[in-house]
């Protein structure tokens, strides 16, 4: 599904450069649910962004679904992102002047899907996250948990191979966090591959595998017994 070999990334800060990722090797199989953990500055978000083609690596190999991701033009990256990846952000990143349904339909718009079909599909995914009744509401009329569910529906809409979540529960209270995790777990149960950056132990333990980063290298990579979120809901 996903293969990373000797990935390096540094950022220029003034005259010096900051080496953020110092040779990462990572393989993720289809259907896995992986938590990437680490303190701030460990390079976990950078890694997720490179996987999400939101950022580019300096050197190393990245193969997604047998497709080498290298030297992509902006246009090609846009197509790959749309086709292969679904994003869930800590701050939801919904477009504030579009209602829930339109937000979910946006990736389908960029796929060139017809309007009718787009709305049908978007409504289907909203139903799936239990917000069909909120389709016409603007993001500001939704609670944090609801916003994140809309964001998840949007990430799912294009039927991506890989779901990337950057601190998906970072802006939510504990109860809502578990609620969202419960939903993400159910997606994984259905076979979606999920990669998630978090710094909360309890959230990480709800995944099936934890990769710990420190100063740009992988310190630990272990499978864990998944804690089901539904018992807390």
């Amino acid at each position: 599904m996903l293969k990373i070999h000797q990935l390096h990334k540094s950022y220029a800060i003034g005259d010096s450069s900051l080496h953020v990722l110092k040779g990462i090797d990572l393989e993720v199989e289809s259907g896995e649910m992986v938590a990437i953990m680490g303190s701030s500055g460990s390079g976990k978000s950078t890694l997720l962004n490179i996987i999400g083609m939101l950022d580019e690596a300096d050197s190393g190999e990245y193969i997604l679904d047998e497709l080498p991701i290298k030297n992509l033009t902006e246009k090609k990256a846009a197509v790959y992102r749309n086709k292969f990846l679904g994003f869930i952000f800590q701050s939801f990143n919904l477009i504030n002047y579009k209602n829930a349904l339109e937000n979910v339909a946006l990736p389908l718009y960029y796929q060139g899907m017809k309007r009718k079909e787009r709305q049908k599909k978007a409504l289907f995914h909203l139903e799936k996250v239990g917000l069909a009744n909120w389709a016409e509401h603007l993001p500001k009329e939704l609670s944090g948990g609801q916003k994140q569910r809309v964001a998840i529906a949007r990430a799912l809409a294009a039927n991506p191979k890989l779901l990337l979540a950057d601190e998906p529960t970072g802006a939510l209270d504990t109860k809502t966090s578990y609620d969202i995790m419960n939903f993400i777990q159910s997606l994984n149960d259905e076979g979606k591959t999920i990669l998630m950056v978090t710094h909360e132990e309890d959230i990480a333990n709800m995944c099936k595998r934890i990769v710990r980063l420190r100063d740009g290298v992988i310190m630990e990579d272990k499978k864990v017994n998944q804690v089901r979120a539904e018992q807390y809901v």
């Binding site: 902006e74 246009k75 846009a78 197509v79 992102r81 994003f87 990143n93 477009i95 990736p107 960029y110």
Partner: peptide, 16 residues
């Protein structure tokens, strides 16, 4: 800018 970032993450081409 932020909206542009969201759109790009969702697959908008630079031209669009």
């Amino acid at each position: 800018t932020k909206e542009i970032g969201i759109r790009k993450a969702l697959g908008a081409s630079p031209r669009s």
